[in-house]
Design a protein around this nucleic acid. Structure first.
Lengths: 345, 345
DNA sequence: TTGTAGGCGTTATCAC
DNA sequence: GTGATAACGCCTACAA
């Protein structure tokens, strides 16, 4: 199947003009007479002429599209971020090309490889859970491909970054549990190679030590694929519940982990918060209709997507090379609901 | 910022060959000597040569990318569909360009206009809630742009379509409520111009008449923007609860409507299912941790995305024009949970 | 004011 | 077996 469309050449032929005259007329050049301009414009409109973006891209050396790579789009947080990305990009006339890594390092490398090589002007990236090495990105960055990181970032590349205040979010969540009187607070978190994991871990530890407690490694469970594989979460949870001193509260440090853990606890008929309290990172808009309603750290996901896109487009459209980079830290919000409220014994 | 990369010309210059020789060598042509081939391939690999996809697109007249337009990506159902689309497309080496209509007709027209004009080889479409007229799509289709519809489809364009068995899904949901003994079953649904709305409405009505009941228009509330605007849903719900004979059960016919309605009922302190039962269409993976756990019609969203993409790529890569079109109907699944189980009085 | 020519990177055709 | 040339559609010096 082919999709034939009218070109500048067709217009030129029809109007007995040269392509350059038509081209100039279409862009309203001063060199062209009013009369010719009108004629060309009218013909173009009638025949619904659209410049071929591919030819324009080839000529200009920019495709007016940006690549996005996330672990998985079917996730409250990431779909909200992409909503933000798409809105800003569309407004500034950029296409958004989405790729999922599915938390796999290989897929991330392949996806980014594919997006780059000039089919994309820049990249918006959140690293996969498996990614420990970012050489593939360093190479591209050195070659001059602009990129902005969000959420799961890396220190090894100097560019704009947008994250939530993960430290503070985790700190507040943990402190809240402490204030409720819980003392054996476990954490289920993503892969230890992710920036978000470390930041949230630090916030959690700081809250514990500020309360005079010593973080216990036994209470910290890493789930390698960030909750995408329910069995991994299940195992982490089972290990926690098998400890001699069972946790009386759990802090789940990512979106999928939070909903999965709540679901697993329900299946195991473990009462929340009576037997174990729960606070999680989640951007689910349904956290208030969970049972129990889920106390949650929420990230400004839409804003994160918008900000990342603004920063990337700044990079793309800047005349001179940018050497000062921003790391924007957006505030999280702790919404306290039932899952963490201590019940009278 | 520029992103310079090596071209076929650079290779030719370096190796003192002509561009055409290099081009052929790279694609393993028989015409080229083994020796030259190895030389070129080795040089290309060393210097990490990637063909410029934009130049290839211009030459071939196809961009190897497909456009997707949905109302909103931040939605369980649609993000799952897009997950499916992306997976298949990536595997077949197509880029996926996402656009959101935000349920606005104007945005849909603009988005599609932008995706077409040859920046995209084909389109995967789910119509916006506001769309009553599909002339913008008919025009493109007649010009030869391949497209596949899913979920919210139109009869006015002959092409492949993929939908869930909405009639049956709604029928079973309603019948289940009837079997539980509910007699005043209301429906909150999307815009009346959407195919899914009509199909689900028919299933609902058929279940009622099969049970000897007469559908009452008062019990059917249309929400124009499919739940994207909570106030609209709230008003629909309020109107239902203001009726002389209040509904004893509600069937919510789309994803966002279901979660929003449950949330609103909770805020109004209306007990579900005791005061009013609820069954909804939703693809939330968290329906079992809602309070009460939500009886739900689930669509095979991932499969829908995969199927739509397979069909589109068939269209794109077919040698001869296709005139026989499929309408694939995928089965829904009714998961009965607490929100619809009649309580002892 | 309009037209010619060349180039963006790749590929296909045809000549050597 | 290799290379010159033209073409995809658009843009832009430069020439007329």
């Amino acid at each position: 199947m082919k999709f034939e469309a009218i070109t500048i050449k067709d217009i030129a032929k029809a109007l007995h003009l040269s392509v350059s005259t038509v081209s100039k007329a279409l862009r309203g050049s001063h060199e062209i007479s009013e009369e010719t301009k009108q004629q060309v414009l009218a013909y173009a409109r009638e025949n619904n002429y659209r410049p071929n973006p591919i030819a324009q891209s080839l000529k200009r050396g920019r495709s007016k599209s940006i690549g996005v790579i996330v672990c998985n789009i079917d996730n409250n947080f990431f779909s909200q971020v992409i909503n933000g990305i798409e809105s800003v990009a569309r407004q500034k006339d950029y296409n958004v090309i989405i790729t999922q890594s599915q938390e796999s390092y290989e897929r991330e490398v392949a996806g980014i490889e594919n997006l780059s090589s000039r089919s994309v002007d820049g990249l918006i990236i959140s690293l996969s859970a498996e990614t420990k090495n970012v050489d593939h990105l360093i190479r591209l960055h050195q070659k001059g491909l602009p990129m902005v990181f969000f959420d799961r970032i890396t220190d090894e590349i100097a560019t704009h970054k947008v994250i939530a205040n993960n430290f503070k979010g985790a700190y507040e969540a943990t402190r809240h549990l402490l204030q409720q009187g819980y003392r054996h607070i476990a954490q289920i978190t993503s892969s230890g190679s992710l920036s978000i994991t470390l930041e949230r871990l630090e916030g959690y530890k700081k809250a514990l030590t500020d309360a005079g407690l010593t973080p216990d490694p036994q209470y910290i469970k890493f789930v390698q694929h960030g909750g995408m594989i329910p069995e991994e979460t299940q195992q982490a949870l089972a290990e926690l519940l098998r400890l001699d001193v069972k946790p009386d509260a759990i802090f789940t440090a990512s979106d999928r982990l939070s909903t999965t853990t709540l679901s697993l606890l329900k299946k195991m008929r473990i009462s929340v918060p009576r037997q174990v309290a729960l606070v999680g990172f989640t951007n689910s808009i349904s956290a208030d209709i969970f049972y129990p309603s889920l106390s949650a750290v929420t990230q400004p996901a839409l804003e994160m997507g918008q900000t990342a896109t603004d920063l990337l487009i700044q990079l793309l459209e800047s005349k001179r090379p940018i050497t000062q980079f921003q790391k924007k830290v957006l505030e999280t919000e702790l919404k306290i609901r039932d899952s963490s409220i201590r019940q009278p014994q």
